[in-house]
Computed example of a mutant assay.
Amino acid sequence: MEYILPILTSFLFCFIAIQVVGPIAIKVGLVDVPNARKHHNGHIPLIGGVAIYIGVITSSLFFVETNSAFVIYLLSASLLLFIGVLDDYYDLPVRARIVAQILVACMMIFGAGYYLESFGSIFGSDEAHLGKIGVLVTILAVLGAINAFNMVDGIDGLAGALSLVTFMSLGVLLGIAGSNWYLLALLFIASIVAFLMFNLRWPNRSLNKIFMGDSGSMLIGLTVVWLLVIGADDNVRAFEPVTALYLIAVPLMDMVAIMYRRLKKGKSPFKPDRDHLHHIFERAGYTRKQSLAAITLASALIAFIGCFMQIIAIPEWIRFCIFVLMFGVYNYTLIHIWKVITWLNRKKKH
C-alpha cells in the first residue's frame, strides 16, 4: 500500500482532470491547430501538462512529506506550468521562456539549496569540484533538461514515454538510496500513464485525444532535472553525476545534435524544424508507432545500462567515455543520415 495507493491516487486525479479540463480548453481555445509542421486531425486540447500537474500535486498533498525544499519545488513547478500554458495559448517568444526557466533554476539553487557541486570523477581518480561555477552549470543543466523534453515532444506519446523511462530509473535509484524524493517520481509515472492513455487513445479509441503542450514538457523537464540534481547531491548520493547523462540520453543527445545542426546552418537553435530523430524514422518509412517503440526501447536500454553501471560501480571516467562515444556515434549517424536511411530501407526489404 505504501506504493500502490499514491500511484492510484495520482492516476485517478490526472484521469479526472483530463475529463474536466479538456472541454474547458476547447471552449477557451487552448488547442493545437494543424499546420505545415504539425500533422494531426482537428483541434486537440493542450491540457496534458495541466492534468499531470493536478494529478501529481493533488496526490502529493496526501502522501508527500512537506518540507521547505518541496514547497520551493511546488512554487517553481507552478510558475513554469503557468508560463507553459501561456506559451501554448499565445506562443511566447523564446526570450520569455528562457527568463522563466532561469528563474525556476534560481529558485532551486538559492531557495532549496540544490545545485551541482561537482562532475564527480569523470576525468580520473580525482573529483572535479565546481565551486561557485556550479551555480552556472546548474542553470545550464535546468535549461538543457527543460528544452530537451520540450524539443523531443514531436509525435504522439514520445515525450511521455521517454519521461516514463527517466522517472522509473530515478524512482529506483532514489529508492535504493533511501531518499523520499522517489515518491515524486512515482506520482509522475502514474499521471503520465493516465495522460498517455488519452494521447495514444489506448486501450480504447473512444478516449478523447489530448496533447501534452509546452506546459507539460517543461514541467516534466524541470522535475527531471530537479530529481537529477538531488540524486547527485552529496547528502543523497543516489548516483554519480555521469549517470544522469544516461537517464536523459535520448532527449539530451537529440537536443544537442539538432541545435548544433541549426547553428551550423545559420539558424536559431530554438527554431522548430522536422529534423529530429522521430522525423528521421518517419522519412525512413517507419510509422509513428514504430518510431515511438524504437526510440523508447533505445532510451530504456541506455537508462538500464547507466543504472547497471551505477549499481556495480563501474569507474565514472569509463562511464563518461562510453557516453561520449555513444553521442559521437549518434551525431555521426545524423550527419550521414541518408546513408543510414538507405541501409534501413534495405533491411526492411529483406
Rank of each mutant, 00 (worst) to 15 (best):
L5R: 02
P6E: 04
T9L: 12
G22T: 15
P23H: 03
L46T: 06
G48A: 13
G48H: 10
G49F: 13
G49K: 12
A51G: 07
I54D: 07
V56F: 04
V56S: 09
S60M: 08
V71M: 15
S76D: 00
L81S: 09
V85I: 13
I98C: 12
L103G: 02
L103E: 02
V104A: 05
C106N: 03
F110H: 11
G111H: 10
A112W: 11
G113R: 03
L116V: 14
G131C: 10
G131D: 01
I133N: 04
G134P: 11
L136V: 15
I139Q: 00
V142I: 12
N147S: 03
G154S: 04
D156S: 15
A161K: 01
L173Q: 03
L173P: 02
L173E: 08
G175K: 04
N180L: 12
W181L: 10
L183F: 06
F188Y: 14
S191H: 01
I192P: 06
W202Q: 14
P203F: 11
P203Y: 05
R205G: 07
S206D: 15
K209A: 03
M212N: 08
D214I: 10
L222Y: 14
V224R: 08
L227Y: 06
I230H: 02
A232N: 09
E240H: 09
L245K: 07
L252A: 15
M253P: 01
R261D: 11
K265A: 15
G266L: 01
S268L: 09
S268Y: 08
A284R: 04
A284E: 04
Y286G: 13
T287F: 06
K289H: 15
S291D: 07
A303H: 02
I311L: 15
A313G: 00
A313T: 11
V324K: 00
K339C: 06
N345D: 13
R346S: 14
